[in-house]
Every structure is written in C-alpha cells, then in structure tokens.
Simulated assay, not measured.
Amino acid sequence: MPAAHTTLVPSTATATANVTSIKSHIPIVLSMKATNYTMWSVFFKAMCGKFHLLHHIDGSILAAPTNPTWIQEDCNVLSWLFGCIHENVLTVMGDLSVTEYSQCVKSLADDLCDVGHAMYEPALVLNLLCGLRSSFANAVDNIAFKTPLPSFSEACSYLLMMEMHQKNDAASSTVLAIFGRPHVVCGSGGCQ
C-alpha cells in the first residue's frame, strides 16, 4: 500500500511573518488627501482574510495578549497597517495650530461617519487629546479628568485658550530677555 501524502501547512503566524512587502497585496495607500478608504479597506480585509486574521480587526474574537501566537499575528497585522497608510492619517498635532489640528480631527471623524463608522463625542474628544504636543500635557490632564468629559467644542475652546497663554508667555519671555536685563555700560575700562 502506498504511503499517504502529507502536506505541511505553516501556521498562520509563520505564513504572515513571511509577507515581506505589503504593497504587493495592498496596492493602495490610505491617505487623507484621497478618498480611497472604501477601496483600501477592501484590500486590507482581504489580506487579513487570506491569512485567517480578520478577528484581529473585526473584534469577533477576544484579544489574547498573553498568547505568543496571538501577539505575533497582531504585530503582523499592525505592521501591514502601518505599511499601507500615509503618515497624514496618523493625526498628530506637530506644528499645526489648535484650530488647524482640531479641524483635522473633526474632518477625520466626519470621514469615518461617511463610511458608516460614526465616532461618538467622548471618543472624538479623547482622540483630540491623544495627538496633542507635549506642551499641552496639563491641558490634556485637565480635560481628560473632567466629569463628565467636556464636549468636543468645549475641549477645543480650552485648548485655544491654552495656546493663547503659551504664545503670550513666549512673547513675554522674549520682551524680558531683550529689555529686562540690568543696564550695562561698557567702556575702555570694561563693562560695569
């Protein structure tokens, strides 16, 4: 009797680790400047489905952060995600003003709503806080620990006020640096 033919199938974790270029599987880069979320999400879901990893993005199975296989699979999905999105999707304040940054966060929330993923007000406020510069650390704490959490417009108003204070403090420091020094007279005998 002939021997049975056995095919070895690599584990999902091993198979996903062998994906070296996400762009060959997902040819679209998700960008804020292009309205390509729907097409990008179809490719991304297909990629996750191909490797039996949809549960990492759809929540159909609870996360298992103590399971080494689950951790490796999740890291692979995150790598794929970061490999096919433009940096403008990762909303961080950078050098933007509070007004520009808050408009960007609100625009992202509106775009998500347009594709059927509405963001509720508390999540919108918390997302606003997550991308702020470190100079707003005190404002983040003050807003995040208010009960109830302020509305998006209240949080933006508070941040605008903080931004004005920061600009005034910087201007005051400059004036003090220029005019606040003691009067020094320099002559041939040195400075007094």
Rank of each mutant, 00 (worst) to 15 (best):
K146N: 04
F44M: 04
M164G: 06
F82P: 00
K23M: 01
L126Q: 10
T20R: 09
D114V: 01
F43H: 15
K50P: 00
Y120G: 01
I143M: 04
G131L: 14
M161L: 07
C84K: 09
T7H: 14
I26L: 05
I71G: 00
N18E: 10
C48E: 02
V29C: 07
D114S: 14
S157G: 04
S107W: 05
S188L: 12
P2M: 04
G59W: 08
S134Y: 08
Q166V: 13
T6I: 09
A155K: 12
N88I: 09
S60W: 11
I28D: 02
M161I: 08
L132V: 12
V19N: 10
E121I: 10
A46Y: 09
I143F: 03
G190F: 01
K45R: 15
D169A: 13
F44A: 01
I28T: 12
H55S: 08
S97Q: 01
P65C: 02
G187I: 11
A3L: 15
E100C: 06
A13L: 04
Q72W: 04
M93T: 06
A118M: 08
V29S: 11
M47L: 15
L30G: 08
V42I: 12
A109C: 12
T147H: 09
H56T: 05
I85C: 07
G180W: 15
Q103A: 05
A64H: 00
A123D: 05
T66I: 08
M39E: 07
P2C: 01
K146L: 11
H5I: 14
